[in-house]
Write a protein that binds this DNA or RNA. Structure first.
Lengths: 372, 372
DNA sequence: GTGAAAGCGCTAACAC
DNA sequence: GTGTTAGCGCTTTCAC
């Protein structure tokens, strides 16, 4: 028995549907009953003269349907302009075909490239990307993860903003959607992590400088909070140690986050006593700031001072001389992360692993023999 | 009356729920009944000893609830680790709090910056971003829009890949979710469009060159398919016309998409008869290719050749001399787009408008008097 | 092969 | 204030 009709002659549920459709369209209420409504599978089924279940089977490409029936349903669907409601499908089936991505800032070209590559892999398999920026703030990260969990994403990709296994990361890892960590691993979290071998990258880079007989090599660091940066510094120390060169603490400079910080720090270093003969920038801003400082101090690169950077960006090839750098495989990271997540979502239950990608030392013109 | 229990003692619907939860977790089927399940609002209501409606009201922050009741419900929710299911909420309420974004490529720093700014505005109001790349391919754009429609997003932001009002754009515009166009307007589509005044930007830029007494100014273009590029060329012509300088068609060069194309085209231009005295690049790749070509031809900038670009990127300040450019307000575009969409979703039904943002001419060192 | 019916987890109109 | 109830649009047994 349908509920009683109201004054306007519409049954309550029907009116609810119209109202909803209208609310979305923001039409004046007076025109209530004329508003177009989205066709549902029920409409399609009715038009095709079959049951909803059959219509769903024909449209959802599962189960058995006669080919004649299928065609009839498909025709009805396209005539009605039927667009399946994936929210309803997700609710009923428990599969949302959505993947959540949480990272520092999509505006950062490094992350932008990663997201792009990842998105290609995932979109191709029918997943939609839900994106959230954390600004490297654990609290924003927590909120983002909560939202994504509430939206019942089928998988999660996170560039963790902290190297601790925070409660929200733990619960994300424990949730039913597989989690893959990107760019930074987190201790004590048993999940796949796609990371770069920063230690080896930095070691190779510093060895390259050592081969040029540099003994006083400065490292310019923004902040030791981020794991990749710590690893790069570790690689620097490893290289020195391997050659038996004692590390001079004054050559490890914590500059601060911006290019300007790096600039100032490098100037102080150059103008101070015991000037280094080479500078190693641990990220693109540090390298850039250092380069400008060297330039402004009237030193020539690489004759008076060698310069080596981490992370390859367009500008490194355009300055004079072009800057030698350790390049990160950003696109490859994105691709692999997407693939790992896909495989987890496909049911891979093997033991979580860390996937180390290797960097590449690109020799350009900014490194040369140490001045004597 | 609940359906009959099956052999394992679980009611059918209950088992479906467990199965679903398991399927997500990929546990061996044998452990069926021990799998943890997400708490639902019904569980919370039961634990708090209230009805589902009351629990929903307490948790959803709407309607009247006694403060004691509210606290009891909230306590129960947090104890159960309740995470509201936003799919269900969206289905029931008709509001998904999600916004779809379709653009060429997030990996492009211009788009990356835009998305970031946009995301800040929208996230703050509780919207989640669903992202899709079109690669400027109308067909991929169509598919993306279909997916987003199926997910019932509350709003759409599109950087149209074609300047025609394609059927899929039309139907997106006609749908119940408001649509805002970004970076490029589409003729015959009555929707808000956030665009840059490329004509004025290019005109001002070319006037700047004309003020330096340049009469032979080349424009390097990748492709006239994109509206912004056409507008820039139009601005170029306007500036010439205003000064009564006849346009020489050979100076409008359609180079092709990449920096290399621009490089080759510029070289041909320089080595040909009647070399121009200034080059105007209509996007960052064109400008860069042109710069390298000028350099490689042994010409000095700006003494032998002036160079002016469109779109400010980091490298423009790092090369020698730094390149003067027309800067695009990317972050501002993202912010404004987000705000327009918010206001439409909030019910603004005013007539759709085009919002023109202005560019800024940044004078650096790459333009100077025309050689005599 | 197709249909009937019972959910998925939530909202919202209405009654008390 | 709180409970009851009827949905939202789809999937998924199970029976025929």
């Amino acid at each position: 028995v349908r509920p009683a009709d109201s004054a306007d002659g519409l049954t309550r549920p029907f009116r609810a549907r119209v109202t909803r459709s209208l609310r979305a369209k923001r039409c004046p209420v007076a025109r209530l009953r004329y508003a177009p409504m989205d066709a549902t599978i029920t409409d399609v089924a009715r038009a095709a003269g079959v049951s909803r279940a059959t219509a769903a089977r024909a449209l959802g490409e599962y189960g058995y349907v006669g080919s004649a029936t299928r065609e009839r349903v498909q025709k009805a669907a396209s005539e009605l302009g039927y667009v399946p409601n994936r929210l309803a499908r997700a609710l009923a089936s428990g599969v949302s075909s959505a993947v959540g991505v949480v990272l520092g800032d999509v505006g950062d070209p490094f992350f932008g490239t990663i997201v792009r590559a990842m998105s290609d892999v995932l979109e191709q398999r029918g997943y939609t990307l839900l994106l959230a920026n954390s600004d490297e703030d654990p609290e924003r990260e927590r909120v983002a993860l909560e939202t994504l969990a509430a939206r019942r994403v089928d998988g999660l990709i996170v560039v963790p903003s902290s190297r601790a296994a925070t409660p929200h990361l733990r619960s994300a890892a424990a949730g039913s959607a597989p989690l893959v960590l990107l760019d930074r691993a987190v201790r004590g979290l048993q999940v796949d992590s796609i990371i770069v071998d920063n230690v080896a990258g930095a070691r190779t880079a510093v060895e390259y400088l050592l081969d040029y007989a540099h003994h006083r090599i400065a490292v310019i660091v923004d902040d030791l909070e981020f794991e990749p940066i710590r690893e790069r510094v570790a690689g620097y120390h490893e290289a020195l140690a391997a050659r038996g060169i004692p590390a001079d603490d004054r050559l490890t400079v914590i500059a601060g986050p911006t290019q300007q910080h790096a600039y100032d720090a490098t100037r102080r270093l150059i103008e101070g006593p015991e000037r280094p003969t080479a500078v190693f920038g641990t990220n693109t801003y540090m390298t850039l700031g250092a380069m400008l400082a060297v330039r402004d101090c009237g030193l020539r690169i690489p004759d008076d001072m060698s310069l080596l950077g981490f992370d390859d960006m367009q500008w490194t090839t355009l300055v004079d001389p072009p800057v030698s750098v350790v390049a990160l495989p950003a696109a490859e990271m994105g691709r692999l992360t997407g693939e790992r997540l896909l495989s987890r979502m496909d049911g891979d239950t093997s033991r979580p692993k860390r996937w180390h990608l290797t960097t590449m030392l690109i020799r350009r013109g900014s490194c040369g023999p140490a001045p004597t």
